[in-house]
Simulated assay, not measured.
Amino acid sequence: MQSWADLFIEQLKATTLLEWFAVILGVAEVLLARANKVWLYPTGIAATLISIYLLWIAALYAECLLNGYYVVMSVYGWYHWVKKRNEPEVKVTFTTRKERVVTLLIVFAGWGILYLLLAHYTPSTVPVWDAWVSSTAWAGMWLLARRKVENWLLLNLSNLFAIPLLFHKHLAMFSVLTLILFIVAIFGYYDWRRIAKFGKA
């Protein structure tokens, strides 16, 4: 246990200013998401662009691809959330049966495709793990963009596996950030579930 603590402290000391900045923006993004505020998207886009650079250096290629997907889905989600002319704001709702099927397809097809790409076309040392974290997060982001309650469940499934993966890759602060996101997402799920059921948090 002491060796893990020493390793964490060592990684913490080696954390760059850029990583700290990405972490702060990431915390702000998830707090805004929990509060159901559209500002989560521009904040998240800034954090994500920095993260892509840092994850590429750490050779987490699927995570880089995932973050590129985050940028695209954030733009889509930002547009989807904004009130359109003569149309009401998109409400927080539970997933339909069709959306659950699409979610499962994103998770498992994404996992398989990413694994094959990582295993055969990159020097990744963790292709299965990296692909799983990314595919579950892909599905969660798709649901978040559509303002579905279950987005928190998929994002936390991804977070659960991402925490040790990031620590393994010596990204201590990203690992801590993901732990914070995991905890906040639990509350976010219950907040959004109340909104979907009763129309208020």
Rank of each mutant, 00 (worst) to 15 (best):
residue 112 G to F: 10
residue 168 H to K: 13
residue 103 T to W: 00
residue 60 L to D: 04
residue 79 Y to G: 01
residue 75 V to W: 14
residue 192 W to N: 07
residue 161 F to P: 00
residue 90 V to H: 09
residue 30 V to Y: 07
residue 159 N to V: 05
residue 131 A to T: 07
residue 41 Y to C: 02
residue 167 F to I: 10
residue 7 L to F: 05
residue 59 A to P: 00
residue 64 C to G: 13
residue 77 G to Q: 03
residue 37 K to Q: 12
residue 92 V to K: 09
residue 189 Y to S: 02
residue 190 Y to C: 02
residue 22 A to G: 09
residue 31 L to V: 14
residue 193 R to W: 03
residue 113 I to T: 14
residue 106 I to C: 06
residue 1 M to T: 11
residue 103 T to G: 04
residue 108 F to G: 06
residue 20 W to V: 13
residue 55 L to C: 09
residue 98 K to I: 07
residue 143 L to P: 01
residue 125 T to L: 13
residue 119 A to Q: 08
residue 96 T to R: 13
residue 105 L to K: 01
residue 110 G to H: 07
residue 83 K to Y: 04
residue 18 L to H: 10
residue 120 H to C: 08
residue 42 P to G: 02
residue 161 F to C: 06
residue 141 M to E: 06
residue 64 C to P: 06
residue 28 A to L: 15
residue 194 R to Q: 13
residue 67 N to Y: 14
residue 93 T to M: 13
residue 143 L to Y: 00
residue 131 A to G: 10
residue 13 K to I: 08
residue 82 V to F: 11
residue 58 A to W: 12
residue 118 L to Q: 10
residue 159 N to Y: 08
residue 195 I to C: 05
residue 135 S to W: 08
residue 148 K to T: 01
residue 53 Y to H: 13
residue 200 K to T: 11
residue 176 V to C: 10
residue 190 Y to A: 03
residue 185 A to V: 02
residue 197 K to G: 03
residue 85 R to H: 11
residue 74 S to N: 14
residue 85 R to L: 08
residue 63 E to R: 01
residue 110 G to E: 12
